[in-house]
């Protein structure tokens, strides 16, 4: 069940970071196949220095999402990433549980 307890801190943290003037991106699990560790709707917030909070995979692919998010913050263009055993050629990281996930990474607009 996607209740506040799963996402509470992450979205609140995202707002706090953005309001304090930090450049940030929000990553969201949009689709999962097989035994993915975190449910659809799980969030990760990342700032332009690579600090992050939350999780989209319980630790397996966060590093790669953070690296990609720093690019998203720079370009201000959203992107969709895919991770899993089927995509080892495309990605250096994978999910050890054998699942597959798709993660949407979007910039959070800073206050003008």
């Amino acid at each position: 069940m996607a209740t506040y307890s799963d996402t509470d801190d992450v979205l609140a943290t995202a707002a706090t970071w953005a309001q304090s003037g930090r450049q940030i991106a929000l990553a969201t699990v949009t689709e999962t196949w097989g035994s993915a560790p975190r449910p659809v709707g799980s969030h990760l917030v990342i700032d332009d220095e690579g600090n992050f909070e939350g999780s989209v995979s319980g630790g397996c692919v966060e590093g790669a999402v953070v690296a990609e998010a720093v690019d998203v913050i720079r370009t201000q263009k959203p992107t969709t990433l895919e991770f899993g055993v089927a995509d080892e050629k495309a990605w250096q990281v994978g999910l050890s549980c054998g699942g597959r996930i798709r993660v949407y990474v979007e910039p959070v607009e800073s206050p003008a």
């Binding site: 069940m1 996607a2 209740t3 709707g41």
Partner: peptide, 23 residues
């Protein structure tokens, strides 16, 4: 259902719904 997920409308346009429901 309080489940987030990807959907398509009748034109095949994809939308992601992030659902936030209190416990």
């Amino acid at each position: 259902s309080s489940k987030s997920g990807m959907i398509e409308d009748e034109n095949g346009q994809a939308f992601f719904l992030t659902v936030s429901v209190p416990p």
